[in-house]
Design a protein around this nucleic acid. Structure first.
Lengths: 216, 216
DNA sequence: GTCAGTGACTGACTACGGGTCAGTTGCGGG
DNA sequence: CCCGCAACTGACCCGTAGTCAGTCACTGAC
């Protein structure tokens, strides 16, 4: 049946169209600012139809996030090529990740919300399984960089690569969060702070903490 | 007018009673799980009355958070006394803060939500002004510890205390967030991770990054 | 003693947004 | 030509934050 194949194609095309509409709206108005009615309008569908393609709003957003990470992963993979040491590879990964979050702040906020409030987000859906897998792959890139660093002597030998990778990753979460809201947060601090420096400062601190001290 | 004075006392007492009810419910069910109707029930008032004492739900929660921080601040201040060096004072502050968030996880989640999503939380209320002030005071404790560390030689001389304090503080946000959700997050990582280690690991990394290298 | 004024309080109501489902449409195969 | 099926629709439901016209109890002036 050629019909079934065409139907299948049309179905995935429609799914992509919904994701396009949702992605644009989320980029403009954020996760919470985005209404399912608005997504439906933008995709020229009725709200009910959205729920034929995605279990709920969270699943739709997870699918958007997954698509975005799929663009990021090859960038990260490429960024570790041609790095002189494992430590610099690690630094490069984290720097690229920060750049990505600056370009896609709402995606990052979504990820954070998922982490922070597992209770109230329904992450049992298939869309979230896919998302988790991507996050795991990003983490493993950092683990690999740390292992390489230990092999070439640029990273302290006494750290456990996996646990240190988790520490690295999570420590960036808060830093990025604040950097994304620098305008409003700067006003809330009782002293003049240049939050533009925050990410580089943290990156520097982490490199110091990981470095074996040897100049390769 | 003695009447006015009594009215004033009764008003603040009622306000405290509402805060007591809200605090308990938030501790049990979290910020989002807590309903204004439920708070009203627990305080033996009608919902409308809550809005005579607090502008909105966010303001009520900010007031709860402020009361909690007011308990934390003296603990932090005491914790730096009798520390041998500025660096260890700094470490002590951060450790106490982590302990506090473990005892009051929902308070921390609320703070994070406020930071992360300034847009959708109404933080123009008086309750938030007070909250901001407290957060600022906590930050200044870290700044002071870093300055002390530079004076006694335990902290690198080339860091700017204020900016480094912000970096320290924010780097802990993500780490604590993940540590608070360790059970559910551990399952999402494609490798066996002991998230119990996360906070100590991060603390260790930060101390390494700040240390002047001198053993005092 | 009475009664108008005042502040505290009430709860039915609105607004809004996520999610549902009975019904419609239109294509394809028999 | 018509049946079946999949895609789609939009009116509807429900939970929850926030509102407001009305009630009640106390106070202090006369």
């Amino acid at each position: 049946m050629a019909v079934a194949a065409r139907r299948e194609r049309e179905r995935t095309a429609r799914r992509e169209a919904i994701l396009d509409a949702a992605q644009e709206l989320i980029a403009e108005q954020g996760y919470h600012g985005t209404r399912m009615d608005t997504v439906a309008d933008a995709a020229e569908l009725s709200k009910g139809t959205l729920y034929l393609y995605f279990e709920n709003k969270d699943a739709l957003c997870a699918a958007v996030a997954t698509r975005l990470i799929d663009k990021l992963l090859p960038i990260l993979e490429r960024s570790v090529e041609n790095t002189p040491t494992g430590l610099s590879a690690c630094e490069s990964l984290l720097r690229r990740y920060c750049e990505f979050t600056e370009e896609n702040p709402h995606h990052f906020r979504f990820a954070l919300e998922w982490l922070g409030t597992g209770e109230r987000m329904d992450d049992s859906t298939e869309a979230f399984q896919a998302y988790r897998g991507r996050v795991g792959r990003m983490l493993l890139l950092v683990v690999a960089a740390l292992e390489r660093g230990q092999a070439d002597g640029s990273v302290r030998a006494d750290v456990d690569p996996l646990h240190q990778a988790v520490q690295l990753w999570t420590s960036f979460l808060g830093v990025i969060l604040v950097a994304l809201n620098k305008e409003s947060i700067a006003q809330r601090i009782p002293a003049p702070v240049d939050l533009e420096q925050l990410v580089p400062l943290h990156l520097d601190a982490m490199v110091r903490a990981l470095s074996s001290g040897e100049t390769s």
